[in-house]
Design a protein around this nucleic acid. Structure first.
Length: 104
DNA sequence: GTTCTCACA
DNA sequence: TGTGAGAA
C-alpha cells in the first residue's frame, strides 16, 4: 500500500495508532521500564490497560506508552511518582485541548 | 508468555 | 518506590 502518496491514508494511520495495543512485555522493551515496575505503576494509577473483553493479560495503547515514557523521564529527574503522574496528565490534557482546536 | 502475592529494602 | 521469588 502506498500511504505516502495519499493524504487520506496518512490519516488512517493515525486511526490505526488509536487501536495499537501491545502486551506488557513489548511496553517494557520499548520504554525500558521493567514489567514488574509497569504493574506497580498501574497499581499506583499512573497507567491503565485497555479494559476490553479479555480478562487475563494487560494490554496498553499508545497513549499509555507515551505516559510511561514521560513519567519515566520525570522520575529519572528526581520527581516522585505521583508528582510525575500529575505533570504528565496535565501536559497531555493541554496538548489534547490544543489538538481539538486544530481539528475544528 | 502472563498473572498474583508476600516479603524485603 | 521498587524488586525477587514462587506458584498458577
Amino acid at each position: 500500500m502506498d500511504t505516502e502518496s495519499d493524504p487520506e491514508n496518512v490519516l488512517m494511520d493515525w486511526a490505526l495508532l488509536d487501536r495499537l495495543v501491545v502486551g506488557i512485555g513489548e511496553v517494557a522493551e520499548i520504554t525500558g521500564v521493567s514489567k514488574r515496575k509497569l504493574r506497580y505503576w498501574q497499581e499506583k494509577g499512573v497507567i491503565e490497560p485497555v479494559d476490553d473483553a479479555e480478562g487475563a493479560t494487560r494490554r496498553f495503547d499508545y497513549l499509555n506508552i507515551k505516559k510511561v515514557l514521560l513519567v519515566k523521564e520525570l522520575v529519572d529527574e528526581g520527581y516522585r511518582l505521583d508528582a510525575a503522574q500529575e505533570k504528565v496528565e496535565e501536559r497531555m490534557r493541554t496538548l489534547s485541548e490544543a489538538f481539538s482546536k486544530l481539528a475544528k
